[in-house]
C-alpha cells in the first residue's frame, strides 16, 4: 500500500490536452506514461505506455471502455487488443501480463500523475 506522502505529483498536462474518452502519452524523464481521460465517468487513469504483449509503446493510443457487471474500466492495446484493467493493471484476457498503474489527480484544469 502506498501512502500519500510517498507520491510525487507530476504535472502532466491540461485536461483539454487529452481527448475525451481517450488517451495520450506523457513523457516523464525516460518513462512513457499513458494517461486516460475517462470523461464519460468523470475519471482519470494512468498506466505504463508499453504493452507487455509485444513490447510496443502504444497503450495511450488504445481504446478505453468497461467490462463486466461492475464496469471495470479497461484499455485495449491497439495492436492485438489485449485488454488491461485501469484499476489493477491486470490483463483481462487471462494472460499473465501486468501493467503498472499510476494515481491521477486533477486540480484547476491541470492533470497530475502520481509517481511513487
Amino acid at each position: 500500500m502506498e501512502t500519500v506522502a510517498d507520491i510525487e505529483w507530476v504535472l502532466a498536462c491540461y485536461t483539454d490536452d487529452v481527448p475525451e474518452n481517450g488517451g495520450a502519452c506523457v513523457k516523464h524523464g525516460d518513462e512513457q506514461i499513458a494517461l486516460y481521460n475517462f470523461s464519460r465517468r468523470g475519471e482519470w487513469y494512468a498506466t505504463q505506455n508499453l504493452c507487455p504483449h509485444k513490447q510496443q509503446m502504444v497503450l495511450s493510443r488504445g481504446m478505453i471502455g468497461s467490462t463486466g457487471d461492475d464496469c471495470t474500466p479497461k484499455v485495449a492495446c491497439p495492436f492485438h487488443k489485449k485488454a488491461f484493467s485501469l484499476l489493477s493493471g491486470e490483463c483481462l484476457d487471462g494472460d499473465d501480463y501486468q501493467i503498472k498503474t499510476y494515481p491521477v489527480k486533477v486540480t484547476d484544469g491541470k492533470v497530475y500523475i502520481g509517481i511513487v
Partner: peptide, 16 residues
C-alpha cells in the same frame, strides 16, 4: 448511441 441503446462505458469492440 451508448446512452440510448447500450449500457456501461463501451469497449474496443462496440466503439469501432
Amino acid at each position: 448511441v451508448l446512452d440510448h441503446f447500450g449500457k456501461g462505458d463501451g469497449c474496443e469492440v462496440c466503439k469501432p
